[in-house]
Write a protein that binds this DNA or RNA. Structure first.
Lengths: 206, 206
DNA sequence: TGATCACCTGTACCGCAAGTGCAGTCTTCG
DNA sequence: CGAAGACTGCACTTGCGGTACAGGTGATCA
Protein backbone atom coordinates (compact mmCIF):
# COMPACT_ATOMS: atom_id res chain seq x y z
CA UNK A 1 0.00 0.00 0.00
CA UNK A 2 2.07 2.91 -1.31
CA UNK A 3 -1.04 5.00 -1.62
CA UNK A 4 -0.94 6.25 1.97
CA UNK A 5 0.57 9.44 0.59
CA UNK A 6 -2.17 12.04 0.42
CA UNK A 7 -2.68 14.30 -2.57
CA UNK A 8 -1.74 17.18 -0.33
CA UNK A 9 1.68 15.70 0.38
CA UNK A 10 2.07 14.91 -3.30
CA UNK A 11 1.40 18.53 -4.20
CA UNK A 12 4.01 19.64 -1.67
CA UNK A 13 6.59 17.21 -3.07
CA UNK A 14 6.06 18.32 -6.65
CA UNK A 15 5.94 21.99 -5.74
CA UNK A 16 9.12 21.75 -3.71
CA UNK A 17 11.20 20.24 -6.48
CA UNK A 18 9.77 22.70 -8.96
CA UNK A 19 10.42 25.71 -6.79
CA UNK A 20 13.96 24.67 -5.95
CA UNK A 21 14.88 24.19 -9.58
CA UNK A 22 12.91 27.00 -11.21
CA UNK A 23 11.90 29.39 -8.49
CA UNK A 24 8.52 30.12 -6.98
CA UNK A 25 7.13 32.30 -9.72
CA UNK A 26 8.12 29.94 -12.51
CA UNK A 27 6.43 26.92 -10.97
CA UNK A 28 2.87 27.06 -12.22
CA UNK A 29 -0.12 25.55 -10.53
CA UNK A 30 -1.15 24.02 -13.86
CA UNK A 31 2.15 22.19 -13.97
CA UNK A 32 1.84 20.95 -10.40
CA UNK A 33 -1.68 19.65 -10.85
CA UNK A 34 -0.76 17.94 -14.12
CA UNK A 35 2.02 16.02 -12.41
CA UNK A 36 -0.12 15.27 -9.38
CA UNK A 37 -3.00 14.19 -11.64
CA UNK A 38 -5.57 16.33 -9.92
CA UNK A 39 -7.69 19.25 -11.04
CA UNK A 40 -7.32 22.90 -10.29
CA UNK A 41 -10.26 22.71 -7.93
CA UNK A 42 -8.46 19.95 -6.11
CA UNK A 43 -5.44 22.16 -5.65
CA UNK A 44 -7.47 25.07 -4.31
CA UNK A 45 -9.31 22.74 -2.00
CA UNK A 46 -6.02 22.13 -0.16
CA UNK A 47 -4.48 25.59 -0.45
CA UNK A 48 -6.50 28.75 -0.74
CA UNK A 49 -3.74 30.35 -2.82
CA UNK A 50 -0.11 29.98 -3.82
CA UNK A 51 1.08 31.77 -0.70
CA UNK A 52 -0.53 29.18 1.51
CA UNK A 53 1.30 26.54 -0.47
CA UNK A 54 4.54 28.41 0.16
CA UNK A 55 3.83 28.58 3.88
CA UNK A 56 3.12 24.85 4.15
CA UNK A 57 6.16 24.05 2.06
CA UNK A 58 8.49 26.20 4.11
CA UNK A 59 7.13 24.80 7.37
CA UNK A 60 7.62 21.23 6.19
CA UNK A 61 11.08 22.06 4.90
CA UNK A 62 12.15 23.66 8.18
CA UNK A 63 10.84 20.70 10.16
CA UNK A 64 12.90 18.21 8.19
CA UNK A 65 16.00 20.42 8.32
CA UNK A 66 15.66 20.64 12.07
CA UNK A 67 15.29 16.88 12.31
CA UNK A 68 18.46 16.41 10.24
CA UNK A 69 20.44 18.83 12.40
CA UNK A 70 19.14 17.17 15.58
CA UNK A 71 20.11 13.78 14.26
CA UNK A 72 23.60 14.77 13.10
CA UNK A 73 24.65 16.60 16.24
CA UNK A 74 23.08 14.04 18.56
CA UNK A 75 24.96 11.24 16.85
CA UNK A 76 28.14 13.32 16.90
CA UNK A 77 27.73 13.84 20.63
CA UNK A 78 27.35 10.12 21.12
CA UNK A 79 30.64 9.58 19.33
CA UNK A 80 32.53 12.09 21.46
CA UNK A 81 31.59 13.56 24.81
CA UNK A 82 33.64 16.72 24.38
CA UNK A 83 31.58 19.62 22.98
CA UNK A 84 34.31 20.89 20.64
CA UNK A 85 35.19 17.51 19.21
CA UNK A 86 31.60 16.43 18.82
CA UNK A 87 30.83 19.71 17.06
CA UNK A 88 33.72 19.14 14.68
CA UNK A 89 32.50 15.60 14.05
CA UNK A 90 29.02 16.95 13.38
CA UNK A 91 30.36 19.41 10.83
CA UNK A 92 32.30 16.63 9.15
CA UNK A 93 29.17 14.51 8.95
CA UNK A 94 27.23 17.45 7.56
CA UNK A 95 29.88 18.03 4.94
CA UNK A 96 29.86 14.37 3.90
CA UNK A 97 26.10 14.35 3.77
CA UNK A 98 26.10 17.38 1.46
CA UNK A 99 28.82 15.88 -0.71
CA UNK A 100 26.91 12.62 -1.08
CA UNK A 101 23.83 14.22 -2.60
CA UNK A 102 23.91 12.91 -6.18
CA UNK A 103 22.85 16.14 -7.90
CA UNK A 104 24.12 18.51 -5.27
CA UNK A 105 21.98 20.21 -2.66
CA UNK A 106 18.59 20.99 -4.13
CA UNK A 107 18.69 24.50 -2.71
CA UNK A 108 17.40 26.12 0.40
CA UNK A 109 13.87 27.46 0.61
CA UNK A 110 15.04 30.02 3.13
CA UNK A 111 17.20 31.60 0.45
CA UNK A 112 14.39 31.40 -2.07
CA UNK A 113 12.14 33.34 0.28
CA UNK A 114 14.92 35.77 1.16
CA UNK A 115 15.45 36.53 -2.52
CA UNK A 116 11.80 37.05 -3.41
CA UNK A 117 10.54 38.98 -0.42
CA UNK A 118 7.54 40.70 -1.89
CA UNK A 119 6.18 37.58 -3.50
CA UNK A 120 5.41 36.15 -0.11
CA UNK A 121 3.12 37.46 2.56
CA UNK A 122 4.05 38.50 6.09
CA UNK A 123 3.45 35.04 7.53
CA UNK A 124 5.91 33.36 5.21
CA UNK A 125 8.58 35.98 5.76
CA UNK A 126 8.16 35.84 9.52
CA UNK A 127 8.40 32.06 9.48
CA UNK A 128 11.60 32.34 7.47
CA UNK A 129 13.07 34.84 9.88
CA UNK A 130 12.18 32.66 12.86
CA UNK A 131 13.94 29.70 11.28
CA UNK A 132 17.21 31.60 10.99
CA UNK A 133 16.89 32.79 14.57
CA UNK A 134 16.30 29.22 15.76
CA UNK A 135 19.44 28.05 13.95
CA UNK A 136 21.31 30.97 15.52
CA UNK A 137 20.25 29.90 19.01
CA UNK A 138 20.98 26.25 18.34
CA UNK A 139 24.54 26.88 17.23
CA UNK A 140 25.11 29.61 19.80
CA UNK A 141 24.24 27.13 22.56
CA UNK A 142 26.73 24.63 21.24
CA UNK A 143 29.43 27.28 20.85
CA UNK A 144 28.91 28.56 24.39
CA UNK A 145 29.35 25.07 25.69
CA UNK A 146 32.60 24.82 23.74
CA UNK A 147 33.77 28.26 24.84
CA UNK A 148 33.28 27.31 28.48
CA UNK A 149 36.02 24.69 28.09
CA UNK A 150 38.14 26.12 25.30
CA UNK A 151 38.33 29.91 25.56
CA UNK A 152 38.05 31.33 22.04
CA UNK A 153 40.46 33.86 20.64
CA UNK A 154 39.66 37.43 21.54
CA UNK A 155 37.55 39.60 19.36
CA UNK A 156 35.13 37.04 18.07
CA UNK A 157 31.49 37.25 18.97
CA UNK A 158 29.95 33.81 19.42
CA UNK A 159 26.62 34.88 17.92
CA UNK A 160 28.44 35.93 14.76
CA UNK A 161 30.20 32.56 14.68
CA UNK A 162 26.82 30.86 15.14
CA UNK A 163 25.48 32.79 12.14
CA UNK A 164 28.55 31.69 10.20
CA UNK A 165 27.34 28.09 10.25
CA UNK A 166 24.08 28.96 8.48
CA UNK A 167 25.81 31.52 6.30
CA UNK A 168 28.38 28.98 5.10
CA UNK A 169 25.66 26.52 4.13
CA UNK A 170 23.61 29.18 2.33
CA UNK A 171 26.64 30.63 0.55
CA UNK A 172 27.91 27.18 -0.35
CA UNK A 173 24.58 26.26 -1.91
CA UNK A 174 24.50 29.45 -3.98
CA UNK A 175 28.07 28.84 -5.17
CA UNK A 176 27.48 25.16 -5.95
CA UNK A 177 24.43 25.93 -8.00
CA UNK A 178 25.86 28.94 -9.77
CA UNK A 179 29.04 27.21 -10.83
CA UNK A 180 27.56 23.75 -11.30
CA UNK A 181 29.97 22.05 -8.92
CA UNK A 182 28.14 20.23 -6.12
CA UNK A 183 31.36 19.61 -4.18
CA UNK A 184 31.80 23.32 -3.41
CA UNK A 185 29.24 23.18 -0.62
CA UNK A 186 30.98 20.25 1.08
CA UNK A 187 34.35 21.99 0.74
CA UNK A 188 33.05 25.16 2.34
CA UNK A 189 31.73 23.26 5.34
CA UNK A 190 35.12 21.60 5.72
CA UNK A 191 36.74 25.03 5.68
CA UNK A 192 34.29 26.26 8.29
CA UNK A 193 35.26 23.28 10.42
CA UNK A 194 38.91 24.22 10.01
CA UNK A 195 38.14 27.73 11.25
CA UNK A 196 36.22 26.51 14.28
CA UNK A 197 39.15 24.26 15.09
CA UNK A 198 41.64 27.12 14.88
CA UNK A 199 39.37 29.44 16.79
CA UNK A 200 39.08 27.23 19.84
CA UNK A 201 42.53 25.71 19.84
CA UNK A 202 44.67 27.20 22.61
CA UNK A 203 46.59 30.21 21.39
CA UNK A 204 50.29 29.63 21.90
CA UNK A 205 51.98 32.90 22.71
CA UNK A 206 55.54 31.89 21.85
CA UNK B 1 21.44 68.20 -17.99
CA UNK B 2 20.49 65.10 -16.06
CA UNK B 3 18.73 63.69 -19.07
CA UNK B 4 21.85 62.02 -20.49
CA UNK B 5 20.50 58.79 -19.01
CA UNK B 6 18.96 56.79 -21.81
CA UNK B 7 15.64 54.98 -21.47
CA UNK B 8 17.57 51.74 -21.77
CA UNK B 9 19.63 52.53 -18.70
CA UNK B 10 16.48 53.64 -16.92
CA UNK B 11 14.82 50.31 -17.68
CA UNK B 12 17.87 48.49 -16.32
CA UNK B 13 17.83 50.56 -13.11
CA UNK B 14 14.16 49.98 -12.47
CA UNK B 15 14.35 46.30 -13.38
CA UNK B 16 17.34 45.75 -11.12
CA UNK B 17 15.73 47.19 -8.03
CA UNK B 18 12.52 45.30 -8.76
CA UNK B 19 14.27 41.99 -9.32
CA UNK B 20 16.41 42.31 -6.22
CA UNK B 21 13.42 43.03 -4.01
CA UNK B 22 10.80 40.79 -5.59
CA UNK B 23 12.58 38.34 -7.80
CA UNK B 24 12.71 38.07 -11.56
CA UNK B 25 9.33 36.47 -12.12
CA UNK B 26 7.49 38.93 -9.92
CA UNK B 27 8.86 42.00 -11.65
CA UNK B 28 6.49 42.62 -14.52
CA UNK B 29 7.27 44.43 -17.71
CA UNK B 30 4.10 46.48 -17.27
CA UNK B 31 5.40 47.69 -13.95
CA UNK B 32 8.81 48.56 -15.36
CA UNK B 33 7.41 50.52 -18.30
CA UNK B 34 4.98 52.37 -16.04
CA UNK B 35 7.83 53.57 -13.82
CA UNK B 36 10.06 54.35 -16.79
CA UNK B 37 7.18 56.18 -18.50
CA UNK B 38 7.58 54.39 -21.78
CA UNK B 39 5.34 52.07 -23.75
CA UNK B 40 5.52 48.33 -24.12
CA UNK B 41 6.78 48.77 -27.66
CA UNK B 42 9.54 50.94 -26.28
CA UNK B 43 10.59 48.17 -23.96
CA UNK B 44 10.65 45.52 -26.67
CA UNK B 45 12.61 47.85 -28.88
CA UNK B 46 15.51 47.65 -26.42
CA UNK B 47 15.13 44.02 -25.35
CA UNK B 48 13.66 41.32 -27.51
CA UNK B 49 12.39 39.49 -24.45
CA UNK B 50 12.73 39.35 -20.68
CA UNK B 51 15.72 37.05 -20.90
CA UNK B 52 17.69 39.60 -22.86
CA UNK B 53 16.90 42.09 -20.12
CA UNK B 54 18.27 39.62 -17.59
CA UNK B 55 21.44 39.15 -19.62
CA UNK B 56 22.08 42.89 -19.92
CA UNK B 57 21.30 43.39 -16.26
CA UNK B 58 23.63 40.64 -15.11
CA UNK B 59 26.42 41.88 -17.37
CA UNK B 60 26.10 45.42 -16.06
CA UNK B 61 25.94 44.15 -12.49
CA UNK B 62 29.07 42.02 -12.90
CA UNK B 63 30.97 44.92 -14.47
CA UNK B 64 30.26 47.22 -11.55
CA UNK B 65 31.10 44.50 -9.01
CA UNK B 66 34.40 43.90 -10.73
CA UNK B 67 35.15 47.61 -10.70
CA UNK B 68 34.40 47.76 -6.98
CA UNK B 69 36.68 44.80 -6.21
CA UNK B 70 39.43 46.28 -8.38
CA UNK B 71 39.15 49.56 -6.59
CA UNK B 72 39.09 48.12 -3.07
CA UNK B 73 42.04 45.78 -3.46
CA UNK B 74 44.09 48.29 -5.43
CA UNK B 75 43.62 50.89 -2.72
CA UNK B 76 44.41 48.28 -0.08
CA UNK B 77 47.63 47.41 -1.87
CA UNK B 78 48.61 51.05 -1.95
CA UNK B 79 48.17 51.21 1.81
CA UNK B 80 50.34 48.18 2.46
CA UNK B 81 52.84 46.48 0.19
CA UNK B 82 52.61 43.09 1.85
CA UNK B 83 50.10 40.80 0.11
CA UNK B 84 48.65 39.35 3.31
CA UNK B 85 48.23 42.66 5.06
CA UNK B 86 46.83 44.40 2.03
CA UNK B 87 44.36 41.53 1.55
CA UNK B 88 43.24 41.87 5.16
CA UNK B 89 42.88 45.62 4.71
CA UNK B 90 40.84 44.99 1.56
CA UNK B 91 38.50 42.66 3.44
CA UNK B 92 38.09 45.23 6.18
CA UNK B 93 37.21 47.89 3.61
CA UNK B 94 34.77 45.53 1.96
CA UNK B 95 33.12 44.82 5.29
CA UNK B 96 32.81 48.51 6.10
CA UNK B 97 31.41 49.20 2.68
CA UNK B 98 28.75 46.53 3.17
CA UNK B 99 27.93 47.77 6.64
CA UNK B 100 27.50 51.33 5.40
CA UNK B 101 24.77 50.50 2.91
CA UNK B 102 21.73 52.19 4.45
CA UNK B 103 19.22 49.43 3.73
CA UNK B 104 21.64 46.56 3.63
CA UNK B 105 23.04 44.96 0.51
CA UNK B 106 20.33 44.95 -2.15
CA UNK B 107 21.09 41.34 -3.02
CA UNK B 108 23.25 39.62 -5.54
CA UNK B 109 22.00 38.91 -9.03
CA UNK B 110 24.28 35.88 -9.18
CA UNK B 111 22.27 34.28 -6.39
CA UNK B 112 19.02 35.27 -8.06
CA UNK B 113 20.08 33.48 -11.23
CA UNK B 114 21.42 30.50 -9.28
CA UNK B 115 18.07 30.11 -7.53
CA UNK B 116 15.90 30.34 -10.64
CA UNK B 117 17.91 28.30 -13.11
CA UNK B 118 15.23 27.31 -15.54
CA UNK B 119 13.82 30.79 -15.84
CA UNK B 120 16.94 31.94 -17.62
CA UNK B 121 18.41 30.75 -20.88
CA UNK B 122 21.81 29.16 -21.43
CA UNK B 123 23.51 32.48 -22.09
CA UNK B 124 22.51 33.97 -18.78
CA UNK B 125 23.49 30.87 -16.83
CA UNK B 126 26.85 30.64 -18.57
CA UNK B 127 27.53 34.30 -17.87
CA UNK B 128 26.72 33.71 -14.22
CA UNK B 129 29.03 30.71 -14.03
CA UNK B 130 31.85 32.65 -15.69
CA UNK B 131 31.49 35.43 -13.13
CA UNK B 132 32.04 33.02 -10.24
CA UNK B 133 35.03 31.50 -12.00
CA UNK B 134 36.53 34.95 -12.54
CA UNK B 135 36.13 35.76 -8.86
CA UNK B 136 37.73 32.41 -8.04
CA UNK B 137 40.78 33.22 -10.16
CA UNK B 138 41.03 36.73 -8.80
CA UNK B 139 41.11 35.62 -5.19
CA UNK B 140 43.21 32.55 -5.92
CA UNK B 141 45.89 34.79 -7.44
CA UNK B 142 45.95 36.96 -4.34
CA UNK B 143 46.06 33.94 -2.03
CA UNK B 144 48.93 32.36 -3.96
CA UNK B 145 50.90 35.55 -3.60
CA UNK B 146 50.24 35.46 0.13
CA UNK B 147 51.08 31.74 0.39
CA UNK B 148 54.43 32.32 -1.27
CA UNK B 149 55.45 34.45 1.72
CA UNK B 150 53.33 33.01 4.53
CA UNK B 151 53.00 29.25 4.13
CA UNK B 152 49.41 28.33 4.98
CA UNK B 153 48.50 25.59 7.40
CA UNK B 154 48.44 22.13 5.92
CA UNK B 155 45.32 20.64 4.48
CA UNK B 156 43.73 23.73 3.05
CA UNK B 157 43.29 24.06 -0.66
CA UNK B 158 43.77 27.64 -1.80
CA UNK B 159 41.07 27.34 -4.46
CA UNK B 160 38.59 26.40 -1.76
CA UNK B 161 39.69 29.39 0.29
CA UNK B 162 39.27 31.57 -2.80
CA UNK B 163 35.70 30.29 -3.17
CA UNK B 164 35.15 31.05 0.49
CA UNK B 165 35.41 34.77 -0.20
CA UNK B 166 32.52 34.70 -2.68
CA UNK B 167 30.64 32.18 -0.58
CA UNK B 168 30.85 34.35 2.53
CA UNK B 169 29.45 37.33 0.68
CA UNK B 170 26.62 35.31 -0.88
CA UNK B 171 25.77 33.59 2.39
CA UNK B 172 25.99 36.84 4.29
CA UNK B 173 23.56 38.50 1.91
CA UNK B 174 21.06 35.65 2.21
CA UNK B 175 21.28 35.78 6.00
CA UNK B 176 21.01 39.56 6.18
CA UNK B 177 17.93 39.58 4.01
CA UNK B 178 16.27 36.60 5.63
CA UNK B 179 16.68 37.88 9.15
CA UNK B 180 16.34 41.57 8.37
CA UNK B 181 19.67 42.53 9.93
CA UNK B 182 21.94 44.29 7.45
CA UNK B 183 24.93 44.09 9.78
CA UNK B 184 25.14 40.29 9.47
CA UNK B 185 26.88 40.56 6.09
CA UNK B 186 29.55 42.90 7.44
CA UNK B 187 30.08 40.65 10.46
CA UNK B 188 30.57 37.59 8.31
CA UNK B 189 33.22 39.33 6.23
CA UNK B 190 35.03 40.31 9.42
CA UNK B 191 34.93 36.68 10.50
CA UNK B 192 36.30 35.59 7.14
CA UNK B 193 39.10 38.07 7.64
CA UNK B 194 39.81 36.56 11.01
CA UNK B 195 40.08 33.12 9.42
CA UNK B 196 42.45 34.30 6.70
CA UNK B 197 44.58 35.88 9.39
CA UNK B 198 44.75 32.67 11.42
CA UNK B 199 45.32 30.57 8.34
CA UNK B 200 48.44 32.42 7.24
CA UNK B 201 49.87 33.32 10.61
CA UNK B 202 52.89 31.17 11.39
CA UNK B 203 51.93 28.03 13.28
CA UNK B 204 53.81 27.96 16.52
CA UNK B 205 54.71 24.40 17.46
CA UNK B 206 55.42 25.00 21.12
C1' DT C 1 17.29 69.29 -48.62
C1' DG C 2 15.90 65.04 -47.99
C1' DA C 3 17.08 60.39 -46.75
C1' DT C 4 18.32 57.48 -43.14
C1' DC C 5 18.50 55.85 -38.64
C1' DA C 6 17.87 55.50 -33.61
C1' DC C 7 14.38 55.72 -30.56
C1' DC C 8 10.42 55.54 -29.62
C1' DT C 9 4.33 55.54 -29.57
C1' DG C 10 -0.36 53.33 -30.37
C1' DT C 11 -3.32 49.74 -31.13
C1' DA C 12 -4.81 45.27 -31.48
C1' DC C 13 -4.21 40.76 -30.49
C1' DC C 14 -2.72 35.86 -28.51
C1' DG C 15 -1.94 32.21 -25.01
C1' DC C 16 -0.90 31.06 -20.38
C1' DA C 17 -1.22 31.46 -15.42
C1' DA C 18 -3.58 32.66 -11.10
C1' DG C 19 -7.32 32.74 -9.17
C1' DT C 20 -13.02 32.70 -8.19
C1' DG C 21 -17.43 30.46 -7.75
C1' DC C 22 -20.24 26.86 -7.39
C1' DA C 23 -22.77 22.71 -8.35
C1' DG C 24 -22.01 17.88 -8.47
C1' DT C 25 -19.72 13.21 -7.22
C1' DC C 26 -17.52 9.45 -4.80
C1' DT C 27 -16.06 7.42 -0.50
C1' DT C 28 -15.91 6.51 4.17
C1' DC C 29 -17.54 6.35 8.66
C1' DG C 30 -20.82 6.63 12.56
C1' DC D 1 -29.10 6.59 6.12
C1' DG D 2 -26.77 10.97 6.44
C1' DA D 3 -22.91 13.90 6.92
C1' DA D 4 -18.37 15.22 6.10
C1' DG D 5 -13.97 14.99 3.49
C1' DA D 6 -11.83 14.91 -0.76
C1' DC D 7 -12.22 15.90 -4.62
C1' DT D 8 -14.20 16.83 -10.21
C1' DG D 9 -16.09 19.85 -13.97
C1' DC D 10 -16.86 23.98 -15.95
C1' DA D 11 -17.24 28.71 -16.78
C1' DC D 12 -15.30 33.07 -16.08
C1' DT D 13 -11.91 37.15 -14.84
C1' DT D 14 -7.56 39.42 -14.53
C1' DG D 15 -2.81 40.20 -15.42
C1' DC D 16 1.37 39.14 -17.78
C1' DG D 17 4.63 38.00 -21.54
C1' DG D 18 4.96 38.43 -26.07
C1' DT D 19 3.86 39.40 -31.28
C1' DA D 20 2.82 42.24 -35.19
C1' DC D 21 2.94 46.09 -37.41
C1' DA D 22 2.03 50.82 -38.71
C1' DG D 23 3.41 54.92 -37.73
C1' DG D 24 6.10 59.44 -35.55
C1' DT D 25 10.06 62.58 -34.30
C1' DG D 26 14.45 64.53 -33.86
C1' DA D 27 19.46 64.25 -35.02
C1' DT D 28 22.97 63.22 -38.43
C1' DC D 29 25.02 63.16 -42.75
C1' DA D 30 25.73 62.92 -48.06
Amino acid sequence: MEKVKSKRELILDIAESGILSKGFGATSIDEIIAEAEITKSGFFYHFKDKNELARALLQRYLDTEEAILDDVFTRARELHGDPLHSFLIGLKMLSEMMGDLPNGHPGCLVATVAYSERMFDRDVRTLNRQAILIWRERFLGMLQEIAAIYPPRDGVDLRTVADMISSTVEGGIVMSRAVGEPKVLAEQIVLLRSYIKLLFSPANPC
